[in-house]
């Protein structure tokens, strides 16, 4: 999985992921989240438009990050999940737990 951090010094930096977000990748994601939250961000955007698969470890990591954001009064926003990822959110009922936005909404 590739992970790129965008706008790291803003109030709501973005993490852009691509590939497969599974148990082998959670450490990298956690480190990136923790660094941003430690440097003042309380909200995160996580762009999953190019993630082709997310397993339960990846989902758990997103839940963890969401809790951290909310504890700081912020929010974790899932941006433009790919079709399989969107359906995985639905099947696991996590679509109700997360704020999910399309990139066009974010940009406006």
């Amino acid at each position: 999985m590739r992970l790129v951090t965008e706008a790291p010094t803003t109030e709501q930096p973005a993490l852009v992921l691509d590939g497969r977000f599974d148990a082998f990748e959670t450490e990298k994601f956690r480190a990136a989240c923790d660094e941003l939250l430690a440097h003042g961000a309380n909200s995160l955007s996580v762009d999953l438009s190019d993630v082709i698969f997310i397993d339960s470890s990846g989902l758990a990591e997103l839940v963890r990050a969401m809790k951290h954001c909310r504890q700081s009064g912020g929010e974790l926003v899932i941006v433009s999940p790919s079709d399989p990822v969107r359906v995985i959110f639905e099947l696991t009922r996590l679509d109700a737990a997360f704020t999910i936005q399309d990139a066009s909404v974010q940009a406006s």
Partner: peptide, 17 residues
């Protein structure tokens, strides 16, 4: 139970396409 739902989601979207 830990792994089946993501697998079903990925398979269902791809096969339906």
């Amino acid at each position: 139970s830990e792994r089946i739902l993501p697998t079903i989601g990925a398979i269902a979207v791809h096969m339906s396409s």
